[in-house]
């Protein structure tokens, strides 16, 4: 029984969706405006100039972009290993304090970022660790682990133990079983988790401001442009790049997790 929605509901839902998307559309529009100093609407004219300006005239964009990509890649690799290990352990074993432990593993995402940031900063201070690319990666890995962990855990719970037992019965050792039975079944969940972790790290600004020291990741570069703007439309061009770099992995992650929901019913 699914009745036709009333027009009031349709209007409210449609307006809500529009509210979620119009601001992003405006970001794209303003990348083409000829007005550099203000956010005048409607734009007085349209130009492609800012794309070439971002590419040729602004060498300050490149180092933050590379740093962000590097940090996101390393933090994701790190999170893939640790997140999967934690999910594997907590899904198969039963031991005292397991529930508390699984709560612990989602804490970095549940607490406001500013608390994670300032806590890590003072810990690095105490450990006499100078702020560097390493400290940025350490900060990002902390919440990236959670994303991979959540994705992997959901998949591990759906794995049927009888396949692992059958593999062992047929003479495979645990490493062969992992390689040929478990890994193929969790691969797409890991891929999805890894992509979300990458997108999250690439976009992170709150924890990063506390752990970056003098270096700028792309979000920090953007934050500085927001506070002290130079060529405003160039910021829009970079914003479009950021949207693309975070959005494509998310679409892919959605595709990977959706596909196996269909397969496993």
């Amino acid at each position: 029984m699914r009745s036709e929605a009333g027009w009031g509901l349709k209007l409210a839902a449609g307006a809500g969706i529009a509210f979620l998307h119009l601001p992003l559309a405006l970001i794209v529009l303003y990348a083409f405006t000829t007005e550099e100093k203000s956010f005048q609407f409607p734009p007085p004219g349209l130009t492609l100039h800012w794309f070439s300006a971002a590419w040729f005239d602004r060498p300050d964009i490149w180092p933050p972009l590379w740093l962000s990509l590097r940090v996101a890649a390393i933090a994701t690799a790190f999170a893939l290993v640790f997140g999967t290990l934690a999910a594997a352990a907590l899904s198969r074993a039963r031991f005292f304090g397991k529930d508390q432990l699984s709560l612990l593993f989602i804490l970095p995402i549940a607490l406001p970022g500013i608390i994670t940031g300032i806590a890590l900063r003072s810990a690095f201070d105490i450990m006499n660790l100078p702020f560097s690319t390493l400290t940025i990666i350490l900060g990002h890995a902390t919440f990236c682990i959670v994303v991979v962990y959540n994705n992997a855990l959901a998949r591990f719970r759906r794995l049927s133990p009888s396949m692992v037992e059958a593999s062992m019965d047929l003479g495979a050792n645990s490493f062969q079983t992992f390689r040929h039975i478990v890994l193929p079944q969790i691969a797409s969940a890991l891929l999805a988790g890894g992509m979300l972790a990458f997108a999250l790290s690439f976009d992170e600004v709150i924890v990063t401001t506390f752990t970056a020291g003098q270096q700028s990741t792309l979000p920090i570069w953007m934050l500085q442009e927001l506070i002290r703007p130079r060529q405003r439309p160039v910021t829009n061009v970079v914003a479009i790049i950021v949207i693309a770099v975070t959005f494509l992995p998310i679409l892919a992650a959605y595709y990977f997790t959706r596909q196996d929901e269909h397969r496993q019913g």
């Binding site: 992003l24 979000p219 950021v242 975070t246």
Partner: peptide, 15 residues
């Protein structure tokens, strides 16, 4: 919108 960049979203509202 949930997963789009946090800063980009704030910037959009500045516009």
């Amino acid at each position: 919108p949930l997963w789009s960049s946090y800063l980009v979203k704030i910037y959009a509202w500045k516009l």
